[in-house]
Computed example of a mutant assay.
Amino acid sequence: MSTVTESVDVHVPLHTAYNQWTQFESFPNFMGGVESVTQIDATHNHWVVNVAGARREFDTEITEQHPDERVAWKSTSGDTRHAGVVTFHRLGDTDTRVTIQLDWEPEGLVENVGDAVGADGRQVKKDAKAFKEFIEQRGLETGGWRGNVDTPGARPDTRR
């Protein structure tokens, strides 16, 4: 299992950074290799990615979500095994630290070589910087979901 952790400070309020991160379908705007993310329901998404010529599709489930604090997920199907968490830390009224941690199981020669030379870590760093640019240029989130999810398979709190 490989792990990457990256933090970026964004010049927007905590709720703005958090709300934008919950808009999964906007991820192709700032994540390299992500072709599309389709939100199936409040806790499930379908991803299509193309990294180094390898096109993959997989599903994810939100396993924990607490407004203005964290979003955690894991893959549930497809040929990509991974999990992650993004946490949000208030630095001031208009500044937030976003920390991304990803755990995954590289498969095949290309993914194992990429992992060995740190390509995945560089991509996460690049994506974090792109998220910063995306949200700071907009100044406002494109939407937001403020529900809570506490355990895998639990029914989410859909109050907004």
Rank of each mutant, 00 (worst) to 15 (best):
D93P: 12
R90T: 05
K74M: 09
I62S: 08
W73S: 12
D68E: 13
A72F: 06
H66M: 07
G78K: 03
H89M: 07
R70E: 13
G92R: 02
E61C: 08
R81N: 05
A72G: 07
V86W: 04
H66R: 12
H66T: 13
T87D: 13
H82D: 11
H89S: 11
E69S: 15
R70S: 15
T60D: 11
V85F: 05
T80L: 13
R70Q: 15
D68C: 08
H82R: 10
Q65K: 15
H66K: 13
S77W: 01
D93M: 11
W73F: 15
E61R: 06
D79L: 01
A83T: 07
I62N: 00
G92A: 09
T80D: 04
A72E: 11
H66E: 12
T94K: 13
D79M: 00
E69W: 07
G92W: 02
I62G: 04
H66G: 02
R81F: 03
D93V: 11
E61T: 00
A83N: 08
D93T: 12
T76S: 02
T94L: 09
Q65P: 10
L91T: 05
T87H: 09
A83K: 13
G78L: 05
L91H: 07
R81H: 06
L91R: 13
P67Q: 03
D95E: 12
S75C: 04
H89D: 13
G92S: 12
K74I: 09
D68P: 04
T60V: 03
R90S: 09
G84A: 09
G84C: 06
P67N: 03
G92Q: 02
D79P: 00
G78N: 04
T80W: 12
D79E: 04
K74A: 13
E61G: 02
F88V: 03
T63K: 00
D59E: 09
H89K: 13
D95Y: 08
G78C: 04
Q65I: 06
P67K: 01
E61N: 07
T76G: 01
S75E: 05
E69A: 15
V71W: 06
R81Y: 03
R81P: 01
E69L: 14
T63C: 00
S77K: 01
D59L: 01
E64Q: 14
F88E: 08
T87N: 11
W73C: 10
A72S: 15
R90E: 12
H89A: 10
E61Q: 14
H66Y: 09
S75D: 04
R81A: 07
R70F: 10
L91S: 05
T76K: 01
A83Y: 06
R70P: 07
I62E: 05
E69F: 09
H82P: 01
E69K: 15
V85S: 10
T94E: 15
T63L: 01
H89T: 14
D93Q: 11
F88C: 05
R70W: 10
D59T: 00
R81C: 02
T76D: 02
S75A: 08
A72R: 12
T80M: 11
R81E: 08
R90N: 07
E61L: 00
P67Y: 02
T87L: 11
T63I: 13
A72N: 08
S77T: 02
A83S: 14
P67M: 03
R90C: 02
T76F: 00
V86S: 04
